[in-house]
Amino acid sequence: MTLTMGRPMREIFGETVAELADDDPRIVMLDGDVGSSTRADIFEKAHPDRYLQMGIAEQNMMGVAAGLATMGLIPFISTFVSFAVVRPLDQIRVLIAQTGLNVKITPGYAGLFTGQTGMSHIIVDDMSIMRAMPGMVTVSPADDVEARQVLRWAAAYDGPCYVRLVRDATARFFGDDYRFEFGEAVTVREGRDVTLISTGTQLPRVVEAADLLAADGVDAHVVHVPTIKPLDVAAIVAAAQRTGRVITVEEHSVIGGLGGAVAEALAEHHPTVVNRIGFQDLYPESGPNDALLEIYGLSAPRVADQVRRLLGRS
């Protein structure tokens, strides 16, 4: 499988929210002084009156978003994942999640591709945290095509949601005919030997790993889970039944994210051996994107190696 590069999700973010705002006067953009990075500046150009610079003050920004939502506006949040999730976590919990207010937490810089920053910016437990919070839904699109659709869905969805976006260009996986359905997993490759479940921009690398495994006679079934919460339990149980063996792969901590969610669901509904590939209990370091994928075992060849080892094929 050879894929072309997609456009950076951050550009899709600025453009799509700007387009949505063309038709919906309730949409506003709140920026934590990083619009030039998250590309909220694209929105600012199109709708200068609805671009609201909040300064470097993320806790306040979340509170302002809650207040705006009570006035019937639909705030989208522009900052980095770490400063959108952990810095203002209490404000999100008390003012946004429990209240069910219509705030779109849509940060860029998810995962490793943060422009060589280090542990302050690379946060790999964001899905665990947001998923655990009552009232918060969590979506992790795989490429630019899906990101655009997720953002359109988010604007229409009535309530708080967390959508994690990636800074740099990543492989485009989906065709123009793809339709994102909130809460639904997508089977992207049929196989019989092992089920690989992935989310976010790890998906293309997992499909490439499946191709490498096929060359060794391992026929992998691959499921993409864009919506981490609510989880598509039925699809995951069906995929587990099909192969009897599940391995999750995510550019995220193995604790509490996709792997955690899948393990919880299968433990209750269809006990299956589940292995989780992703970050162990650690803080990733800074470095060039490709180097980091190698170091943390998330490049396609490294994923294939780990799957072989887990299946006793190496």
């Binding site: 060589q116 280090g118 800074s286």
Partner: peptide
Amino acid sequence: FDAAHSRLQGHPDMTR
């Protein structure tokens, strides 16, 4: 600076 495995992380890391 900013290379993989460097002690000179993009942002200062006192553990390194």
